[in-house]
C-alpha cells in the first residue's frame, strides 16, 4: 500500500506501507512510476515493513536508479526498516555494487 503526496514545490512524499515482497511489487512499481511522472524530488518513507524479499529489493533498486537517472533525487526519510536492511545484507547488496554512479539506496541512512 502506498501513499503519495506532492506538495507545491514538486516534492513527492511517498510512504510505502507493508511488506516489500513479491505480492506487492506491482504496486510498488506503480507507486514509483507515479512519482516519476509527478514529482521533482522524492522523500521516501517506509512503515510496517515486516518482510522483504529479493523481488522487493529488485524493484527498489531499479526504481532508485530509474529516478536518479531521470533527475529525481531520492532521500530516505526516517529509518530504513530492519527487514529491508537484513534482506539487502543477505543478498550482498551494498549500495548496489555494480551501479556506476555509486548512488546506492541504502548506503546512506
Amino acid at each position: 500500500m502506498y501513499d503519495l503526496v506532492i506538495d507545491d514545490t514538486g516534492t513527492g512524499k511517498l510512504t510505502l506501507k507493508g511488506d516489500l515482497t513479491i505480492q506487492h511489487v506491482q504496486e510498488l512499481k506503480q507507486s514509483f512510476q507515479d512519482v516519476a511522472s509527478q514529482a521533482k524530488e522524492l522523500h521516501l518513507k517506509f512503515t510496517d515493513v515486516e518482510r522483504a524479499d529479493l523481488a522487493g529489493l529488485q524493484i527498489l533498486c531499479t526504481a532508485h536508479r530509474s529516478l536518479v537517472k531521470g533527475g529525481i533525487p531520492v532521500i530516505i526519510a526516517g529509518k530504513v526498516p530492519a527487514a529491508l536492511r537484513e534482506a539487502s545484507d543477505a543478498a550482498g547488496f551494498k549500495g548496489c555494487v555494480s551501479d556506476d554512479d555509486q548512488s546506492g539506496l541504502w548506503t546512506g541512512g
Binding site: 512499481k29 514509483f32 512510476q33 516519476a36 529488485q58 533498486c61 531499479t62 526504481a63 536508479r65 530509474s66 529516478l67 537517472k69 543478498a91 550482498g92 547488496f93 548496489c96 555494487v97 555494480s98 551501479d99
Partner: peptide, 12 residues
C-alpha cells in the same frame, strides 16, 4: 558478490 547487470535501469 551480487551481479546486477541484468537488472533494468528503468522502471518502464
Amino acid at each position: 558478490i551480487p551481479f546486477l547487470d541484468d537488472l533494468p535501469h528503468s522502471l518502464a
